[in-house]
Write a protein that binds this DNA or RNA. Structure first.
Lengths: 332, 332
DNA sequence: CTGTTAGCGCATTCAC
DNA sequence: GTGAATGCGCTAACAG
């Protein structure tokens, strides 16, 4: 086997053992279970190792133990502002346990997602799937190989953390009603999205409860242009306010309204979901805030727990949302 | 050694060899160098392996070859909209070579960055450091262990890809001058940022060349609130336009202006940098576009090249920027 | 508390 | 073209 000569070849455990006049096992213990050997020897070895620039070879350790201290995280699209905070949260939690995280981008594409899963396989102890595009069957199959935790995807038997927009959307409707709105529209996102179904249903329940007029306009994509394109339909419905599937669409709606000289919030109110850009726009967007960072943390936390004790109770962790009122909503 | 019993234990190369009636070497070759064995045997073995659900153990292979097909990518802050497209680009390129990428978040913190580097070490063949907060010495030291490629950081001898804002910023100034502006301000970002220094210098050169009045206001942080807080200083300077270190600050400036009832672009023009949010706001932000996705791709591409042929010529790859004109700039 | 022994799963010299 | 032997670096039983 040809080893590319490293500029500064790393010492092996044997070299440290020789230099310290002990066996390799002792050196090994000095790093993995220091409390199992003499305090003095442990210190001496670690010090010596430090001087020699020795560090345990992660790969060799992984081969021997079957544990590599890595997890995988697959998201549909890193560039969608919804995900970065979630990734961040996952990182933070992984960090605390000294785990490294592989990041994968599925491009909203099931086969790409499966490919990543395959590629990660054998290098990760578990995987977090965010807004997975895989079928239930594929997910269940993947979970048979190694622990899987889902975010915003509800598959029975697979640990999952769900951001529940119900409360936030209800608050949004209540907020608009309190401001005097009597005809609201929900701008729907991707039809196969779990989050979208959930928000739409919460919307329906809330408007029915309030006994006001309401309608739904359907867009296929969740982005600025898509939101902008819905404005004619929204205005045609005679609504005075819109709750949008996400903030990007909300921005699009605002753009479309501005083009038609409909002032926000003077003549029309707009509410987004996820609160990913709220504070950085003008006027600042009222939005249903999603605890995405928390979702990332929780998912990884659950995954790591599962790696510890191999319990397999059915976890379904729900995170609540709330309305963050800013400047795009006003009295009718 | 206690191996946690996998639900569906993966077959090893030996089992496949036994089942196929060949030696382990042959099976190994069937996967790593199929052309080195009989076409027929290779096919037969691969087929059998597929049936048995065999896949080469990544870790064992890595231990033996010293190559694990992973790279590390460390960014200051995943949540900063500048980075996701870059991450995306890096992923795309890694994907093409069947590499997995470890993502790390340094929190703009040098010691956290060093810690990640350490944690990745031994599992990655190379690392891409984006807007590194490490000292030159630390970077050089890291590069002695394994290949390192820098993005937006200029250290002699280390391969680097730099987004050169000079052209874009010059265009921005020219654009404003053409619109009749005669007093412009540059809203400076983090003082130790390479990008900021570069933009500020390009600004100085351009305004001097145009012979117009100009000034610089200094902010320490690059975010919305920081931009918003600069508005009084900007207006006090008597400027009619501002070029901001990045889009987030530009948004902040727009927010601050709106609060003071200064209409954009009617009475004041605003230009951002990086073009990370331009199209999703209203009015749409004029911005100096940074090819961040391309930067990510190029960095990984250079890294992978370097892993192939161990050449070590000094690469300094420059990516140009250009002004994207939208609706926040207008005649004075 | 420490050393000895035996793999983890694979890639790779050598022979044949 | 194929098989036998050896080692990658480390950990974990088992003795002592």
């Amino acid at each position: 086997m040809v080893q590319k000569p490293p500029s500064r070849s790393a010492p092996t455990i044997s070299q440290v053992a020789a230099a310290a006049g002990v066996s390799r096992s002792t050196v090994s213990r000095a790093f993995s279970r220091p409390e199992a050997i003499g305090q003095a020897t442990a210190d001496r070895i670690r010090e010596l190792a430090r001087e020699m620039g020795y560090a345990p070879n992660h790969t060799a350790r992984a081969l021997s133990t079957g544990r590599h201290g890595n997890i995988g995280l697959i998201v549909p699209d890193v560039s969608n502002p919804f995900f970065p905070p979630l990734i961040r949260g996952a990182q933070v939690e992984a960090d605390r346990a000294d785990f490294c995280v592989f990041l994968g981008n599925s491009d909203e594409n099931p086969s790409q997602e499966a490919k990543l899963l395959e590629r990660f396989s054998g290098q990760v102890e578990g995987v977090v799937l965010v807004s997975s595009r895989l079928t239930d069957e594929q997910i269940i199959e993947a979970a048979q190989i190694r622990p899987v935790v889902l975010v915003n995807r509800d598959v029975e038997g697979i640990p999952r953390v769900l951001i529940d927009s119900s409360i936030g959307v209800s608050e949004a409707v209540a907020h608009l009603v309190a401001l005097g709105h009597r005809n609201i529209v929900y701008v729907s996102g991707p039809s196969k999205s779990w989050s979208n179904r959930q928000r739409r249903n919460a919307f329906k329940r809330a408007v029915k409860l309030a006994g006001i007029e309401a309608s739904i306009v359907y867009a296929d994509m969740a982005n600025y242009d898509s939101g902008r394109a819905q404005v004619p339909k929204i205005l045609a419905a005679g609504a005075s306010a819109a709750i949008c599937f996400d903030d990007l669409m909300a921005q699009g709606v605002m753009g479309g309204l501005a083009e038609r000289d409909v002032p926000v919030p003077a003549r029309f109110s707009v509410i987004g979901c996820d609160d990913v850009i709220g504070a950085t726009t003008y006027p600042a967007l009222t939005s249903v805030s999603s605890p995405t960072l928390q979702a990332g943390r929780t998912a990884v936390s659950i995954l790591l727990d599962r790696l510890e004790d191999n319990t397999s109770q059915d976890i379904r962790y729900t995170l609540d949302t709330r309305l963050v009122t800013r400047q795009t909503t006003g009295p009718v």
